[in-house]
């Protein structure tokens, strides 16, 4: 039976994570590909950390899984691009490619880290969660041009890491659990972000030439 020791911090951190994702989009100007993907990656990070209890090992394993999934999805899409395959069939193939690469990576990571990853349920659930983001990856590839795809992937990766780091930050979790009124501040932040109409920071840089003129 899988037991997650600290359910409360996970639940309490969810609104914090999503507020950070929203702020990154509306104030800074970096977009992820849906909240679900970044939140899922963050949860996967947390689950892997629960087993390894080392930030750097977690980062290594987590990043490897994410890169495997992204790499597998891109390679599979490239391999089947000229085939006459239905749209949902393509997504299924991309799932297959990403999952195979993810699975193939597990023994390699076990050897490198010295942790028998297959027997660690939490890590496997983390890998599974990362695998579920293939669907978003696949549709992102079809809907956006390659540059926008790359931007969203990078942003999602970085935000997933940032939010995952928050989830495993013990000091912060203690504060949040013992001072749940912090969520009022989160609520206020959400109101501010929700009503934010000012120009995004990336847009200031993008339109610099007009402002200079």
């Amino acid at each position: 039976m899988v037991i997650i020791q600290d359910i409360a911090p996970i639940i309490l951190n969810l609104p914090v994570i999503v507020t950070i994702i929203a702020a990154t989009r509306y104030i800074i100007g970096f977009k992820t590909w849906r909240n679900y993907t970044a939140v899922t990656l963050a949860l996967a990070f947390y689950l892997i950390y629960e087993t390894t209890r080392s930030f750097w090992v977690t980062l290594f394993v987590w990043a490897s899984f994410v890169i495997a999934v992204i790499g597998g999805a891109i390679l599979t899409r490239y391999a089947i691009r000229k085939r006459n395959i239905n749209y949902y069939g393509r997504i299924a193939f991309i799932y297959l490619g990403g999952t195979v690469l993810l699975f193939a990576l597990v023994p390699v990571l076990s050897w490198v880290t010295g942790i028998p990853l297959f027997s660690k349920t939490m890590i496997m659930i983390g890998a599974f969660l990362i695998g579920t983001t293939i669907d978003d990856l696949a549709t992102l590839q079809f809907k956006k041009d390659s540059q926008e795809f790359l931007r969203r992937i990078v942003t999602t990766f970085v935000l997933g890491l940032v939010c995952g780091s928050i989830l495993v930050w013990e000091w912060w979790n203690n504060v949040l659990v013992n001072h749940q009124e912090i969520l009022i501040a989160v609520l206020l932040a959400n109101i501010l972000i929700a009503t934010w109409s000012n120009i995004r920071i990336t847009e200031i840089l993008r339109f610099k030439s007009i402002l200079k003129n």
Binding site: G29, S197, I199, R200, E203, F207
Partner: peptide
């Protein structure tokens, strides 16, 4: 920038 440029938020 907030009075000249139309950003996505606005």
């Amino acid at each position: 920038s907030n009075t000249k440029i139309l950003g996505l938020n606005h």
